[in-house]
Computed example of a mutant assay.
Amino acid sequence: MPPSTRRADYRRYRELVTERPDWFVNGPDGIQILLEDADIRAAQRHIAKRNRAIGLPPASASVGVLSEDRYVVALRDAIRFPDGSLGTHNRVIYANPDGVAVLAVTAGRIVLIRIYRHPVRRWMLEIPRGTVEAGHSLEQTVHQEMAEEVGGAISRMVHMGRTTSDTSLCTGRVDLYFAEIDGVGKPQLSEGIGQILLVTPDEFMAMAERREIEDAYALAAFAQARIRGLV
Rank of each mutant, 00 (worst) to 15 (best):
N96L: 12
P97E: 07
P97N: 08
G99D: 02
G99R: 02
V100W: 09
V102N: 04
V102F: 05
V102Y: 05
L103Y: 14
A104F: 02
V105Y: 08
T106K: 05
T106D: 03
T106M: 04
G108R: 12
R109S: 07
I110D: 03
I110L: 07
V111M: 06
L112T: 10
L112I: 07
R114A: 07
R114C: 02
Y116P: 01
Y116K: 01
Y116L: 03
H118V: 06
P119G: 05
P119C: 00
V120P: 08
R121H: 14
R121T: 11
R122G: 15
R122S: 14
W123P: 00
W123H: 11
M124T: 08
M124S: 08
M124K: 04
E126V: 11
E126A: 14
E126L: 07
I127H: 09
I127M: 08
P128F: 12
P128W: 10
G130N: 09
T131W: 09
T131V: 15
T131C: 11
V132W: 09
G135P: 13
G135L: 13
S137C: 07
S137M: 04
E139V: 12
M146G: 06
A147D: 14
A147N: 12
E148P: 07
E149K: 15
G151F: 06
G152H: 10
A153D: 05
I154T: 13
S155A: 02
S155C: 00
R156K: 07
V158N: 05
H159V: 11
M160H: 12
M160N: 09
M160W: 14
M160K: 06
G161W: 00
G161C: 01
R162Q: 07
T163M: 10
S165N: 03
S165G: 05
D166I: 07
T167H: 03
S168I: 01
L169V: 12
L169D: 05
L169F: 14
L169T: 09
C170K: 02
T171S: 15
T171M: 08
T171R: 06
G172E: 14
V174E: 00
V174L: 04
D175Q: 07
L176Q: 03
Y177N: 00
Y177Q: 02
Y177P: 01
F178R: 05
A179S: 13
A179T: 06
A179I: 03
E180K: 03
E180R: 04
E180I: 00
G183S: 02
G183L: 04
V184K: 04
G185N: 12
G185D: 09
G185R: 14
G185L: 11
K186C: 12
K186Y: 09
K186Q: 15
K186G: 10
K186H: 15
P187K: 05
Q188K: 15
Q188V: 04
L189S: 10
S190H: 11
G192H: 01
I193L: 03
G194A: 13
Q195D: 13
I196K: 05
L198R: 12
